[in-house]
Design a protein around this nucleic acid. Structure first.
Length: 241
DNA sequence: GCGACAG
DNA sequence: ATCTTGTCGC
């Protein structure tokens, strides 16, 4: 795949202020409504991307699927220049991800990115950064909530299939109350003391919050994580061990 | 100063 | 993310 917006490639040498300014531009370029293109296959081509680290090296693994079939697997390793800073994750992991996608032949209909998309202080999380830079539809899939406010309390376990809107609050640039994503319960235990936490799904680029949640729910039937994400996670771990 | 915060 | 064995409950 090719870079659509080279000016948005994450540069870890920027100052924190410059990084935040770039995110503001990225959010402006981001599309949080459905624009998945007319090439949506039968079934759609869905890619998952995830990273694993070893010391100063970040390995990004991409798994491309169509239905239940893996049609491509690629990876790239890049040095990590900066530590993890909440809100600036893309400047730590984005380089490795873009390097991996440079080697991807099959253009996916949608990419599932580990982390937040619009659920971000400046509405420019990792999924949005990658989506806008490559101009590919992306969805953010996070295991924890970075910011925003669940419309309903999530202290009680949600049944599988349920979803709760995540709304913008004062910590997010979007107008208060804007639905910036969903807590999506893909799996749940039938009963007992233990329970499964939901995933926090948000639009990255060219996808609405509703469609983002739909895509994740549709691909996460056997396990909590959607299959492309799960396989990319395992592949990244395998490459680092 | 305190709190809060994806991976 | 990563360091790490067993263990409890589906």
């Amino acid at each position: 795949m090719e870079l659509a917006r080279p000016e948005f490639v994450p540069d870890s040498s920027l100052s924190r202020t410059e990084m935040e300014a770039l995110q503001t531009d990225i959010a402006d370029a981001g599309v949080f409504t459905d624009d998945l293109g007319s090439t949506f296959g039968q079934p759609p081509v869905v890619a998952g991307v995830d990273q694993a680290f070893d010391g100063e090296q970040a390995t990004s693994a991409v798994v491309v699927m169509q239905g239940t079939e893996v049609i491509e697997r690629t990876h790239a390793t890049e040095p990590t220049e900066i530590p993890y800073i909440p809100g600036l994750l893309s400047f730590r992991e984005g380089g490795a991800i873009l390097a991996a996608f440079e080697r991807v032949e099959q253009k996916p209909d949608v990419v599932l990115v580990d982390g937040s998309g619009r659920i971000h202080f400046r509405e420019a999380g990792l999924a949005t950064h990658i989506g806008v830079t490559l101009d590919v539809p992306t969805v953010g899939v996070a295991k924890n909530l970075l910011c925003g406010q669940p419309r309903e309390s999530l202290s009680e376990p949600l049944p599988a299939g349920e979803r709760v809107p995540i709304e913008a609050d004062e910590d997010v640039t979007a107008p208060d109350g804007t639905v910036i994503g969903y807590a999506v319960q893909t799996r749940q235990y039938d009963s007992g003391s233990r329970h499964i936490n939901p995933l926090y799904v948000s639009p990255g680029h060219r996808v609405s919050a509703e469609t983002a949640a739909d895509v994740v729910a549709r691909h996460a039937t056997e396990y909590k994580l959607p299959e492309p994400t799960r396989l990319a996670d395992a592949y990244a771990d395998e490459l680092t061990s």
